[in-house]
Design a protein around this nucleic acid. Structure first.
Lengths: 148, 148
DNA sequence: CAGTATCCCTCAAGATACTG
DNA sequence: CAGTATCTTGAGGGATACTG
């Protein structure tokens, strides 16, 4: 991450995204944030990451506008880390990773957590790229076009 | 990656996915593969990655069943790396990363590549998690349920 | 509790030479 | 061309002590 290549100058959005969130911990922090984790110690305990690393990652995420700090909801004097709108926009990324992992990295009946809609308790549909008029498209039906 | 924590034993599909593909190069290799890159040198030149690293990543991806080797389509004696079905299933992950990057990591009119449907030339719709009956759901409307 | 400051160390990554 | 082998480096990350 933050390689000498200066990915931020790279025109590919995938590369630029990965440069920011494509390391070992960042997306796990974001995943925990989606699961409602808000406090330093809770992230630390859930992830088992070293505190200095967590500290640096949280700072990066705040700097990037993915998380924001706000006063703690309870009476404690500390702050909480919550997802911004930009952070919430990572939901499809996390869900896509989750769904792929569920399907391809677990044995047939191996137990794993599952993402469901609260209201109905039903699992979400499998995400798939679509055209604006709702047709599903496979990778071979698409291509990358360079803009100027 | 491949930490002492043995992520493969972790029940969270997101963590397990990231343990396999969540490093600096792997998803870029996959992205290139989606863009039609098939040969060692082409990956190497596009990515600017050291050859030994690329070699190791390709091997990992083949071992994981994401890429497969096949005889080169031209007359050369070498092999090509192509996405398996499991690899193609990563399309939503790459698209989600791309779309997030496009929206949040580029300035207003900063140029970037764009993913379009070949047939119509039109850009894809923004991916969003949905219920099985097609309603969009936000992160707050979902929760993770543990299965046994 | 919520971090920061140090120290240390492993491993990912780069460079390069070599081989079929 | 398509890799493998070897060496070196630097950053990412862990452990721990410290602070408000």
């Amino acid at each position: 991450m933050n390689s000498g290549k200066n990915m931020n100058a790279q025109p590919c959005p995938v590369a630029r995204s990965l440069d920011l969130i494509g390391d070992r911990w960042t997306l796990l922090v974001v995943r925990d944030a989606f699961d409602g984790v808000r406090r330093f110690s809770d992230f630390q305990r859930h992830l088992g990451v070293a505190r200095n690393i967590l500290s640096e990652r949280l700072r990066r995420l705040v700097d990037a506008g993915i998380l924001a700090t706000q006063p703690a909801s309870d009476s404690s004097a500390y702050q909480e880390y919550v997802l911004t709108e930009q952070g919430k926009a990572l939901f499809p990324v996390v869900v896509a990773l989750r769904q792929w992992g569920e399907r391809h990295l677990f044995a047939e009946h191996e137990p794993h957590s599952e993402l469901v809609e609260k209201r109905t308790g039903k699992p979400l549909a499998f995400m798939a790229p679509q055209t604006t008029d709702g047709r599903e498209v496979s990778a071979d039906e698409t291509e990358v076009r360079k803009l100027s």
